[in-house]
């Protein structure tokens, strides 16, 4: 059997998603045996410019010309392109202030007046290229990555799950932080699959996995406003991982 060729790369991001792979310690030996890791700069593999891939698993938002170049290169060289993590899929934390501050001002603050860096507001890679599969999460769940790798090996893609955090949260018999404690929990509109990690420990859902497909955003906004939260505070929290919300969306 030929080993599928993989590229594992990052654009503008913290490398935490790629680290998810390295954290799969029990499976790393199998992954290295079963796949040809042709391009994995973070893991110090070589970077053959002429390589072609069966799958490119790419984290990060697009925010520099170099990001665009790398992304186009991987898209052209790979059969499958996988948006890996919340930044790749939704923009993520790097994009949280896209709406509130100008890029030039941010660059000046970070790099000083003499700093010369080409940068534009971070955005999801789907704005630039077509994506074949996405794994959400900040960081993504290990089991989602392993399910993808196993599916690629079997010549397919993993089945999709689509339900909000509340579904797993209720099934775990957690206390509802939204209804019972009146906290600003985003559970109803956020993609589940994390097994309600945060609410299970008493921390509200911050929305790190991005919107669930059918999120009733307008109603979530309404019920948070009814519970006395300030509109600005709600928007600030909602845009922490996903800058682009349609606050009027009901279906």
């Amino acid at each position: 059997m030929t080993r599928p060729k993989l590229a594992i790369a990052g654009l503008t991001a913290c490398s935490g998603c790629q680290l998810t792979l390295l954290n799969c310690e029990d499976q790393l030996v199998d992954v290295a045996r079963l796949f040809d890791l042709v391009y994995f700069p973070m893991g110090e593999s070589g970077s053959d410019p002429d390589a072609v891939f069966d799958a490119a698993i790419v984290e990060g938002a697009v925010s520099t010309p170099a990001d665009v170049e790398l992304l186009f290169g991987l898209r052209n060289a790979s059969h499958l392109l996988v948006a890996f993590g919340t930044c790749a899929l939704w923009g993520g934390v790097a994009a949280m202030n896209n709406k509130v501050s100008g890029r030039d001002e941010l660059v000046r603050q970070v790099y000083g007046d003499s700093g010369r860096i080409e940068s534009f507001p971070p955005s999801p890679m789907g704005n630039f290229v077509s994506i074949d599969f996405a794994i959400t999460g900040c960081p993504p769940e290990k089991h989602d990555l392993l399910a993808l790798l196993a599916a690629v090996l079997a010549g397919t893609l993993p089945p999709l799950q689509s339900y909000p955090v509340c579904t797993e949260c209720r099934s775990r018999e957690n206390l509802c932080l939204l209804l019972e404690k009146g906290e600003l929990c985003l559970g109803p509109i956020i993609q589940g699959g994390c097994n309600a990690r945060c609410p299970a420990t008493g921390i509200v859902c911050e929305g790190c996995r991005g919107p669930v497909r059918e999120a009733n955003v307008a109603q979530e906004l309404e019920l948070l406003l009814e519970r006395g939260f300030d509109r600005k505070e709600i928007e600030r929290r909602m845009s922490r991982f996903t800058p682009e919300w349609d606050y009027g969306k009901r279906r």
Binding site: P164, C166, G187, E214, A215, N216, L223
Partner: peptide, 12 residues
């Protein structure tokens, strides 16, 4: 209009 599709009614 108001159902947030959280699924709690069915889960419970």
């Amino acid at each position: 209009t108001t159902c947030v599709s959280c699924g709690a009614c069915s889960v419970c």
